[in-house]
Amino acid sequence: MLPNVDQDTVQQTAATAMEIPEFVIGRYYSRKKEITGRFGGSGRNGIAPSRRSPAIFLFTGTGEQHGYKDRLGFDYLDYVGEGQIDNMQMIKGNLAIASHADNGRALHVFQMTGKGKPCMYLGEFACHSHFSDQGVDRNGKMRSVIVFRLIPVSQTLRCELEDHDSLDGDDSTAQGKPEDLAALREAAVAACRPGGPNSDPKEGVRLAYVRSLRIKRYVRARAHGHCELCDAPAPFNRKSDGTPYLEPHHINRLSDGGLDHPKYVGAICPTCHRLIHFGENGQHRNDELRARIAAKEAPFAGGNGE
């Protein structure tokens, strides 16, 4: 059983919450003034984890002379990791991408248009797999490169909105019963951890849906039928299975869809969900939800990197 939420902790955490970046797809932004200059992060590297927000900024479109040849498809982006000489290693920026869901950090991707020129925002992506490829380093030597298969977060929005608890291809052996909160959390956290190399795009999408489903199952069970923001009972029960109707909300995103760790997803009523997105004090209520979820998840802190 999770502990009651301490209101003093909620208020203190909400007051110190980090700013969440918000960009518009297709719009151009100055890296120096509006991206890393505003939220922190390297002003030159292609992978720039923010120092002041739960985000990692990725820049694509340059650096082919160093072996960085990204491939943008219809519904995915194969993004080459960092490291200009010798084989790439799963460290620093590369590890930050692979672990972004586990750490609750959004991946914001920008298309470079030239040195010092504005960058076009391509959208928020999630890393679902990675694999090794061959390429040349800065000195023209063949080496092993890490390629991350990134998928737009909108790809998993369907699973977020679907009002059922089954998904083709979910072969988990630890689904847990609705009341088995520990098993549900274990399955959700395991789905967020970086997986092994996998170059199959279809498998990446399948794993994305599975991860999203497991998180949704857990946060609904954690809520015990009450909105995790306003504490009111769910407005109605689902006709499909009679369970309380609550909607998943990603605290570290201002848009819905995509993946996150259970520590950064709340189960809230439709009214609070729309208040966060469209209300004049939506950011404040989102920060309050962050604090409430942090208090609920605090007992699990420190165990296996969770």
Rank of each mutant, 00 (worst) to 15 (best):
F74V: 06
L150P: 00
A15C: 03
N252T: 04
A191H: 07
F39Y: 15
I251H: 01
P197Q: 14
G67N: 08
S50K: 04
L254G: 02
Q111A: 10
L254E: 04
F236G: 03
P21F: 09
L107R: 01
P244S: 08
I47L: 04
K115H: 11
N304D: 15
M142G: 06
L107S: 00
N281W: 11
H273P: 06
A17Q: 13
C119Q: 13
C119A: 07
G305V: 09
M88A: 07
N286W: 05
Q175D: 00
I85P: 01
Q12E: 10
Y245N: 04
R290N: 11
D241E: 07
M142H: 14
F59M: 04
V147Y: 09
G169S: 10
E280C: 06
E162C: 12
L184E: 00
G282L: 08
L157V: 05
G305D: 12
L289C: 04
V10M: 07
V219Y: 05
R44H: 09
H164V: 02
V5F: 11
S212T: 11
A98Q: 11
G305M: 11
E34D: 14
T271Q: 09
P201F: 08
G257E: 02
D168M: 14
Q89M: 10
G41Y: 08
Q65N: 14
M1S: 08
F57P: 01
T243R: 15
M142V: 07
H249C: 04
G135A: 15
R253E: 04
V265W: 07
A232F: 10
C230Y: 04
R27S: 08
E124F: 00
I268E: 01
L207W: 11
Y218H: 11
E247L: 12
G225M: 08
T113W: 11
I85T: 13
R71Q: 10
V109H: 00
R51M: 10
Q65C: 06
L254V: 00
A55E: 01
F39M: 07
K92Q: 14
R193F: 09
R149N: 02
P248L: 02
T16W: 08
G41N: 08
G63R: 06
K296I: 00
K239G: 08
D78F: 06
A294V: 03
G83L: 13
L184Q: 08
M142K: 15
M112P: 05
H261W: 05
Q84A: 15
A174Q: 14
P178F: 14
G225S: 03
K202R: 14
T271R: 13
G303A: 15
L167V: 05
E179A: 14
V147F: 10
I56P: 01
Y68Q: 06
G37M: 09
L58D: 03
V219T: 04
A174F: 11
F59Y: 14
A101W: 09
G67A: 12
F278R: 14
E162N: 11
Y209W: 09
L254T: 05
P270K: 09
T113L: 13
L107D: 00
G242I: 07
G195I: 02
I25D: 00
S132H: 15
S199D: 14
T16K: 15
L181Q: 03
K115S: 11
G40C: 10
G37A: 12
A223V: 03
F131P: 00
H130I: 01
L289A: 03
N252C: 12
G73I: 00
D171W: 13
R44V: 08
E162I: 12
L181K: 03
T13L: 15
